[in-house]
Design a protein around this nucleic acid. Sequence first.
DNA 1: TTCAAATGTCTATTGATATAGACAACCATA
DNA 2: TATGGTTGTCTATATCAATAGACATTTGAA
Lengths: 244, 244
Amino acid sequence: MAGQKIQRQTGVALWRQIADRIRTSINHGDFDETGMVPPETMLALQFGVNRHTIRSALGALAQEGIVRAVQGRGTLIERKERLSFPISKRTRFSQGIGDQVRETRSVLLAASEEAASVELARQLKINTGTRLVRLETLGQADHRPVSRATSWFPADRFGGIADVYRATGSITKAFKELGVPDYVRVVTEITATHADEGDLADLQLSPGAIVLITQALNTDLDNVPVQYSISRFAADRVRFTVEN
Amino acid sequence: MAGQKIQRQTGVALWRQIADRIRTSINHGDFDETGMVPPETMLALQFGVNRHTIRSALGALAQEGIVRAVQGRGTLIERKERLSFPISKRTRFSQGIGDQVRETRSVLLAASEEAASVELARQLKINTGTRLVRLETLGQADHRPVSRATSWFPADRFGGIADVYRATGSITKAFKELGVPDYVRVVTEITATHADEGDLADLQLSPGAIVLITQALNTDLDNVPVQYSISRFAADRVRFTVEN
DNA sequence: TTCAAATGTCTATTGATATAGACAACCATA
DNA sequence: TATGGTTGTCTATATCAATAGACATTTGAA
């Protein structure tokens, strides 16, 4: 937590900037020796702000479940994590991070059918208006939400994928049941933005948080597009790893 | 710019949230038909805030050079960009985006020599304490800063790389002069965080902005690490594309 | 038990943020 | 030239964010 200065009068409250910086430091392992955040008075000195401002920042982190203040002792670090997601031909949600957490789960939030927009048709290399199955899913690791995704599948081949997915909790298994033994990721686009309302709710984020967004296309082994998906990850919980 | 609600009392001022959303909409091409942002009164209605708050947001975007308000006519869109960076074995700064801008340039900000830390030694597969050349560079596209990077090179092989880089303005050319005809990217890690003070200065960002961070390792054709670098990109100006 | 160190709570004050309303200035066009 | 639509400016008010200081409460260790 080096001496970078806090920015004033920029539309982002000092307590929020400081909360973000402390969260980053925690994830970086800066306080691993003690397992505690430095005392409020010391933080106030370091950041050059009033102790009350520090308390607002720590209060926000406590709300997130990252720290817990104990009167008389100090502020303990409760949780700290940043999962590493490998991005490769074989990118799947659960497999990549399986060795980093005890339990991964994928929940189906909603399923519907719709006609392909111009953009979706371009991505999936089909005609505009083709029927698509649309799935909204939530990825969890050890019961903490990590990502929310919207996926589209051509309805003619994968009309029943919602039910199969609901039963298996896995895209990979659902594909297998529907006659796609294997699939590969062709291209992944990565951007970042601030969390929107849906992110705040589904990913249990605090406003101002960052989400990493991936837009990915999967094809079967004959190079026929089978899935296009847009996923939003809580940026303070994940890291992407691109292996070439 | 769909009807996502603005978050109140979250430490992020409404005008900043709205500015970020409008900037995103502009980059997304939502206003390409008219080349103008909707009238202030309409935006105020859409976002459910006072017109003055909208004016603060547009003022911030005007400061960034993204829009320009003209009394009596409206608010014109001046600039709009999100460069696409391909990430692959052959990732290089200038080549990937060469067809998207008129001019790319890379500037050497600082050069120094230092001993390898434990982490750097692990990445570059050398012994801790080995001498390294450290370069701080700034990547520009059409005279606008896009990324800032810190790179480390083993000093025994690349002791003079700073001078060569200063002369050629290209890592690729510098490597060639120093006996590395070609190199490949082995692994890239991608994270996102809020801009720090250095980002604000070097990348001309406004506080609260997002930076995408890549940590990458390049090796020569014999799989010997030649360069480890940490780059920070202005998130609203770039998009990463991973081709598999 | 005593004390130092840490968090918890309270009051007061200042500046930034946001709302509300009114009107001026300017532009394009009918 | 008149008008509707737009940005520019001003005043006033309420709430949030940040500072300042004082003191209470709890904990762990001397």
